[in-house]
Write a protein that binds this DNA or RNA. Structure first.
Lengths: 148, 148
DNA sequence: TCTCATGTAACTTTCAATGTTACGAACTAG
DNA sequence: CTAGTTCGTAACATTGAAAGTTACATGAGA
């Protein structure tokens, strides 16, 4: 998730297609790993890929029309929580009572989280990125006089 | 988490102390694993342990005074989410923007989840467990005539 | 004193995530 | 049409964290 967002924002900074090779160097990983996660996004219509000379990955939709929720589903909607339910011995009544209680809380939190994802666009992330860049430039050009 | 709750509810069904050996068989695991997770709960005052003959684990507090939140903290407050933030290259402005956005959503969901945990007592879980037992008994003694 | 039980360090095993290699398919430039 | 690029994907290797295991020390009761 975090890595994919990183990649997409970097792609938005370049106008032409970007190869898996280049993206892999940015993320300090392997081109095949990039292709794996991009596969889902491609199927979802978020990005497109082109082969051969001048090929690579391109954003297929506007940043403003993409939310964190789109990306989450694009990468296959993986489990959100680290503390899952035991699925062993589900016939045990104790197990069922425990799972019922945990599920109630987890489902509620999951609904909120996904709703929250739905309100954040990649355009917002990009804007925050550029704001940080500007602040950083201002800080260094003024000789780091502020703060500590 | 799920496993610990299972253990605690089983302990509540017995009046005397229960050994790690017995609990391990219930959970289909190893006694040492039981002692490991119980260590935190003991430090938190949730359970006590006694050595020697007739020893084992005992609930030190009433089920009604224990919430899921207490148990969560008792086992060391492990990470709740499976989709963490990248901590590599945190100086990259893109990374910072991504982490900022994800943290905002995750923190909000975490707060809700923990609050939700705080409202559920183990007494409630135990009641649900006994309700299930009663329903199951009723269903089998009536010959499974209802539903399918 | 002998047995039972926890406490804990050290080691091993397991398993899923990630990384890697290899090769086929599709595309472009010349 | 040929050569060079790039994605697509299967198969295998590596890694790291969680769980399991062994071993032994400590404390408590019969």
């Amino acid at each position: 998730m975090s890595g994919v967002l990183h990649v997409l924002l970097h792609m938005a900074e370049v106008d032409g297609p970007v190869t898996s090779e280049t993206l892999a160097r940015m993320m300090q990983t392997n081109p095949v790993v990039i292709r794996r996660v991009m596969a889902g996004l491609k199927a979802a219509g978020t990005v497109r890929s082109d082969k051969g000379h001048g090929g690579g990955w391109t954003l297929a939709r506007d940043l403003a029309s993409l939310t964190l929720l789109d990306i989450y589903h694009g990468i296959g909607s993986p489990p959100l929580f680290a503390i899952g339910n035991r699925r062993e011995a589900p016939e045990c009544a104790v197990e069922q009572a425990v799972n019922e209680a945990l599920d109630a809380s987890l489902d509620e939190a999951e609904a909120l989280l996904l709703a929250s994802f739905g309100t954040v666009t990649l355009a917002t992330l990009s804007q925050n990125f550029h704001r940080r860049l500007a602040e950083r430039r201002a800080a260094t050009s003024s000789g780091d006089r502020h703060d500590h």
